[in-house]
Design a protein around this nucleic acid. Structure first.
Length: 457
RNA sequence: GUGGAUGUAGCUCAGUUGGUUAGAGCACUGGAUUGUGGUUCCAGGGGUCGUGGGUUCGAGUCCCAUCUUCCACCCCA
């Protein structure tokens, strides 16, 4: 067999021990915050039935789903004559009925409906697992990445939204990542489309508005025109796009602008109440009412969130919102949920580039016993066990190779303490303890070893 | 899915208008030092030049295709 160059699929990554220590620091911090707010852990399978996934993320989302080829003779049901006339899309419907999950929210909704009789509502869960998207990789964009979701379903209270903001604030405070939390409400966007006389164009409207920060006012207006929104409607939108003022002023402005839209007024009230809660919640990060925030996922119906890092531009590092009827598609209408998702990989990128990883999490190196041969190594085993029981991580070099080689290994592993027990030491029942940072070494009795090692560490 | 850039040793990169056997630094292995690392010195191993075609007497170098990575669009964590 010809040797092949080892590689991994496009957009996926290996994580080295050094990277894993840092990633785990992020995961543990997030999980800790989730737990202290009363959320419970949940996991779902990497793959879902394709019928569960399709149609939940919009047309673009469907395109980005990874499909899993059926097992067995999956072409048997297709007439060979029909094949040439079939495009990849329709063929895919016949030969794939499973797909990798695209996010954690839809599988969660599926879980809630499927287990509705076992669940006590309001149900609060968190879920930290990878998701897959067949997107083209780019800066901060991967085909396999981890999401850390917190959701609560079965409650329409805006206190849930406020709690999620608190969680976002606390996570990034603990990770020492500077952020701005942007908040909007889909009902506001629907209301705008309504008062502009283009209620069916809400999606086009939001896609264009969302780009304001990126492409500027002129280009947004151009895009609105291209998307078939009449000039007089665009004219009504201009004050929104150019609005300067604080959150309270924005709410007052909306109340005036959206007066004729029941939906719009509902959204305005929701925002007002949420910001009221936030004022009483002692939030450290900036919470900004962003009238141009849209978010592409189809299922959001109320409050929407997005978090961006202020010290490193990489797109959003956390996002989410309220979905009023996600469970309805699975046959359980009338259950409202709200949640946010932390993008662990992007948070990692931000922390790496802004040097936010604490040194302390990196230096958990063990004590190393050198291996002088079969007999000497045998005498090390009880000492090794004693150290470990004393809570000191320790290891014995497995092969009796040259001491120089073993020392070199210790050095590269950044081992702080090396213990040498050779023929000489065995005779006196002593161990030589070497401090690798100073280079100094000292002989101690086996009984004193743990204590001595501790003093050097 | 659209457009642009990229690929030479494990890593970072040289490589002339196309011309012998493709180089350097770091890393690795062995030795100076038969029980002592991080410094130094000496020696050594390692590359079908991303892959597949083509042009040419001759291709790392030119052309085409394809893949990877990166960047932008779309969309998004």
């Amino acid at each position: 067999m010809a040797t092949q160059k080892p590689s991994i699929p496009k957009g996926t990554r290996d994580f080295s021990p050094r990277e894993m220590i840092r990633r785990n620091h992020i995961f543990r911090t997030i999980e800790e915050v989730f737990k202290t707010s009363g959320y419970q852990p949940l996991e779902t399978p990497a793959m879902e039935n394709l019928s569960t996934l399709t149609g939940k993320y919009g047309e673009e989302g469907d395109r980005l789903l990874f499909r899993i080829l059926n097992s067995g003779d999956f072409l048997s049901g297709i007439a060979p004559a029909g094949l040439p006339g079939m495009d990849a899309r329709s063929l895919a419907r016949h030969i794939a009925d499973k797909g990798l999950r695209y996010d954690l929210t839809v599988p969660f909704a599926r879980f809630v409906v499927q287990h509705r009789h076992e669940i006590v509502f309001p149900f609060k869960r968190y879920q930290i697992q990878p998701v897959w998207r067949a997107d083209r990789p780019q800066k901060g964009r991967y085909r396999e990445f981890y999401q850390c979701d917190v959701d609560v379903v079965g409650s329409t209270s805006l206190l849930n939204e406020a709690e999620l903001v608190q969680i976002m604030d606390e996570v990034f405070r603990r990770l020492e990542v500077g952020v701005e939390i942007r908040i909007n409400n889909r009902k506001i966007l629907a209301g705008m489309a309504e008062v502009m006389g283009v209620p069916d164009k809400m999606k086009d409207l939001t896609i264009a508005m969302d780009k304001l920060e990126k492409i500027g006012l002129e280009n947004v207006i151009g895009e609105l025109n291209d998307r078939g929104i009449p000039a007089e409607a665009v004219e009504q939108l201009k004050p929104v796009l150019g609005f300067q003022g604080g959150n309270a002023e924005k709410i007052a402005f909306l109340r005036n602008m959206l007066a004729s839209s029941a939906t719009g007024m509902k959204g305005t009230e929701e925002l007002e109440r949420l910001f009221g809660y936030l004022e009483q919640s002692d939030i450290g990060a900036t919470c900004l009412l962003d009238l141009t925030l849209a978010r592409g996922l189809d299922y959001y119906t109320g409050t929407i969130f997005e978090v961006v890092a202020t010290e490193w531009l990489i797109g959003s590092i956390c996002g989410g919102g309220r979905y009023d009827d996600l469970t309805g598609i699975f046959g359980m209408p009338g259950i409202s949920g709200v949640g946010v998702s932390f993008g662990a990989d992007r948070i990692y990128d931000v922390m790496l580039n802004t040097h936010k990883f604490p040194e302390a999490i990196e230096s958990a190196t063990p004590v190393l016993f050198l291996n002088f041969g079969e007999e000497e190594a045998g005498h090390v085993l009880p000492l090794l066990k004693a150290l470990r029981e004393a809570g000191i991580s320790a290891e014995l070099y497995p092969d009796p190779v040259k001491i120089k080689k073993q020392m070199s290994y210790a050095n590269q592993r950044q081992v702080k303490v090396v213990v040498l027990i050779g023929k000489d030491e065995l005779k006196e029942k002593m161990a030589t303890v070497k401090d690798m940072t100073t280079g100094r070494q000292e002989k101690v009795s086996f009984e004193q070893l743990a204590e001595k090692v501790k003093s050097v560490l």
